[in-house]
């Protein structure tokens, strides 16, 4: 499965290029708009081409990510997918209550995390040792909040709440709570 760090790298590259391009365009526009023009009007055809480009960009982004980011279709279809392992985690009073045994996953396994809250709205995120994010979801009280993930890289992963639950929630970190082995 494509790793989330690879997706983030691709996004960084694409957005950085876009940001530099739009800043250059606006800089050029700001310079040229103060100069004498040639009197040519902008044709409506250019406007409609631009509209078409925007439609294409807006729609194609979601189609491309659906076809290239594996957890996107998996998430939409997760109720029909059988997990290799399921872990149930509860949160109460700004504290994760983890399974009694350490969560150990074999590389390549598909795992379901069922997370519930007894009181507030929290978040549930998995992070690498360099603090980069693998995934996250919201944890709402009154619901079983589940996420399906396939782990393709061995290592230790830290759980932390990704949603603010009051100042008491800043310490909601369970270091190396999940281990993926070869």
């Amino acid at each position: 499965m494509v790793d989330s760090s690879l997706v983030l790298f691709g996004q960084t590259l694409a957005y950085t290029l876009y940001a530099l391009a739009i800043m250059a365009v606006m800089g050029w526009f700001g310079y040229r708009v103060t100069k004498q023009g040639k009197g040519r009007d902008i044709k409506p055809a250019l406007f409609y081409t631009f509209v078409g480009f925007l439609v294409l960009a807006g729609v194609s982004l979601h189609i491309i990510t659906h076809e290239t980011i594996p957890w996107k279709p998996m998430d939409l279809n997760r109720s029909a997918i059988k997990a290799d392992k399921t872990f149930s985690i509860n949160i109460a009073n700004q504290k994760f209550i983890l399974p009694a045994e350490k969560m150990v996953i074999k590389k390549g396994e598909t795992v379901r995390f069922n997370v519930t809250s007894d009181d507030l709205t929290y978040g549930f995120g998995l992070f690498r040792t360099d603090n980069s994010m693998v995934f996250q979801m919201q944890v709402l009280p009154g619901y079983v909040n589940d996420i399906l993930w396939r782990f393709d890289k061995a290592g230790a992963y830290t759980i932390r709440s990704t949603e603010y639950s009051g100042p008491k929630g800043i310490g909601m970190i369970e270091k190396n709570a999940v281990e993926v082995v070869e």
């Binding site: 979601h62 990510t65 957890w71 979801m137 919201q138």
Partner: peptide
């Protein structure tokens, strides 16, 4: 700059690693 950044995060695949 900001509107395309918003469209990016309003994608189910990318939101999973960008939200919050």
């Amino acid at each position: 700059l900001a509107v395309p950044a918003g469209i990016i995060q309003a994608d189910l695949g990318l939101n999973r690693i960008l939200h919050n």
